[in-house]
Amino acid sequence: MALETIAENRCFDGLQGVYRHESEACNGPMRFALYRPPQALAGEACPVVTFLSGLTCTEENFTVKAGAQRMAAELGLILVAPDTSPRNQGIAGEDDSYDFGSGAGFYLDATQAPWSKAYRMESYLTRELPAVLEEYFQADWSRQGIMGHSMGGHGALTLHFKNRERWQSVSAFAPIVAPMQVPWGQKAFTGYLGDDRSTWEAYDACALVREKPSRAEILIDQGTADNFLNEQLRPELFEQACRDTGQPLKLRMQEGYDHSYFFIASFIEDHLRHHATALRG
């Protein structure tokens, strides 16, 4: 599978790249960003942490705004930031709203036409993108973590629960933890998965943790001044589910912080250290 280099820039003695390849799962070209710390450039097989972004984002948001490269260079972590959805599929309504269609793939495999022809982000992230990464980049693929923000926090949690052997560590910023119970998730799941709510449970962190908790401690940071806290995010629902099942969880309510990348940049060091500790060989 051919890989095209869009850009590569020196950063904290490592290399920040952006790449593109053809995706069968997403029916067209997909981009991802990848940061290789100086240890990786020197030939060391470093652990890998994937960051999943939120609604409206691309691979660029985390790469440019989070300020993660300095700490990744210090800790010897490779960072992967994929796009959030397929693009330019020509589907009616694809670009009509910010919370469905382009930029809003919700990290699931759509089963409803016409979305099912391309909106297969779960397959992309669990099968296709890993194959590309392992072909072109050296890393310790046996040590991987996953984290994300908002919709991406939802993706990080659900993908960890369903693929805990691949992603052994997990964290999230302001995740959508109960999509079956909030408007963002209900809109997306109805459109991508249909009206049968039993099929939605495979993409709901609260349902998945009740089915089978993970041994990994989950780190979640949530701002108290987040405009979406009470209607869309509902961290107390996941906290209760974790308490009921014995799932290790560290939920930190951060006073005065909102939903922006200023919030992420403020605590990204803690999250990368969380992953580095969990993935230490």
Score class of each variant (00 low, 15 high):
Pro213Asp: 01
Ile220Phe: 02
Arg197Glu: 15
Gln144Trp: 03
Tyr136Ile: 03
Asp95Leu: 09
Ser198Asn: 12
Phe137Ile: 03
Lys117Arg: 14
Ile176Lys: 00
Gln69Trp: 01
Arg215Gln: 14
Val80Thr: 08
Gln168Trp: 00
Arg243His: 13
Glu4Val: 14
Ala110Leu: 10
Leu125Arg: 00
Val132Arg: 03
Lys162Phe: 04
Ala66Tyr: 02
Pro213Gln: 08
Trp115Phe: 11
Ala33Arg: 01
Asp83Ser: 14
Thr58Ser: 15
Lys187Pro: 00
Glu60Arg: 15
Leu251Pro: 05
Gly101Thr: 07
Val80Tyr: 08
Leu133Asn: 02
Phe51Asn: 07
Ser116Ile: 00
Pro248Gln: 09
Pro86Lys: 09
Arg234Glu: 06
Ala110Thr: 06
Thr5Ala: 05
Val209Asp: 03
Leu41Tyr: 11
Leu52Cys: 11
Phe32Thr: 02
Met71Ser: 13
Arg143His: 13
Asp140Met: 02
Ser97Glu: 10
Ala42Ile: 03
Leu34Trp: 03
Ala92Asp: 15
Glu201Gln: 12
Ser150Pro: 07
Arg210Phe: 07
Tyr107Lys: 08
Arg87Lys: 15
Glu134Trp: 03
Leu237Ser: 04
Gly67Ser: 13
Asp95Met: 10
Leu41Val: 12
Ala174Glu: 03
Arg164Leu: 03
Leu279Gly: 10
Leu193Thr: 11
Cys242Arg: 05
